[in-house]
């Protein structure tokens, strides 16, 4: 892996204040994606969190917001961007924080998303990562304690 690929990218279409954003994490899969999604969902400030393995420009949320004709237009013009290829080694994590206001842009039908909290989804992501780390540490400690102190059956297995 070269340094040229950043570990995390913010996918196009995020709110300017990052109150709602999709993060593309490079070289990760369901292993981290699902655990991270669970931890983010344990955060009461998170309204929505979902992840997809494989690149997809349009996260599920964007699909809900966009008119159907727009999606068909994009999918037909840039199929590579919409259909996630399973071989692509990335996950997209979508995080939306509570308090997001939907405003409608006067010139277009698309809503603009804005939020008073600055960088809240990125903060939620960082918190979730450190919480997951302390969870892992706790499980490891409990396991090692059991291995050391508990009584369990020992047996010889023939190979």
């Amino acid at each position: 892996m070269t340094e040229a690929t950043p570990k995390i990218k913010i996918v196009k279409g995020a709110a300017a204040d990052l109150s709602a954003a999709t993060y593309q994490i490079h070289d990760e899969s369901h292993t981290v994606g699902n655990a991270l999604r669970w931890m983010l969902m344990k955060n009461p400030k998170v309204e929505f969190c979902g992840y997809r393995a494989g690149t997809d420009l349009l996260c599920p949320v964007a699909y809900w917001l966009l008119p159907l004709s727009f999606i068909t237009m994009i999918t037909s013009h840039a199929p590579h961007a919409c259909a996630p290829h399973p071989s692509e080694n990335v996950i997209n994590v979508r995080i939306q924080m509570y308090g997001t206001k939907l405003l409608h842009c006067p010139c277009r039908q698309l809503p603009i998303i804005c939020h008073p909290d600055n960088l809240s989804s990125l903060q939620a992501l960082t918190t979730a990562l450190s919480d997951l780390d302390s969870l892992c540490e706790t499980v490891e400690d409990a396991y090692l304690t059991s291995l050391r102190e508990d009584r369990y059956e020992r047996w010889e297995e023939k190979s």
Binding site: P6, K7, I8, K9, I10, V11, K12, G13, A14, A16, L18, A21, Y23, Q24, I25, E28, T31, V32, T55, L57, A81, L119, L122, Q123, L125, T126, L129, S130, L132, D133, C136
Partner: peptide, 28 residues
Amino acid sequence: EKLKKIRQAAEALYDQVAVDGDVTMADV
């Protein structure tokens, strides 16, 4: 180890956004 790597990247991203006050979005 994986979590640490992602967290470092997320913190770097946070610092960068906080300083520039501008979100750089990747062209993906």
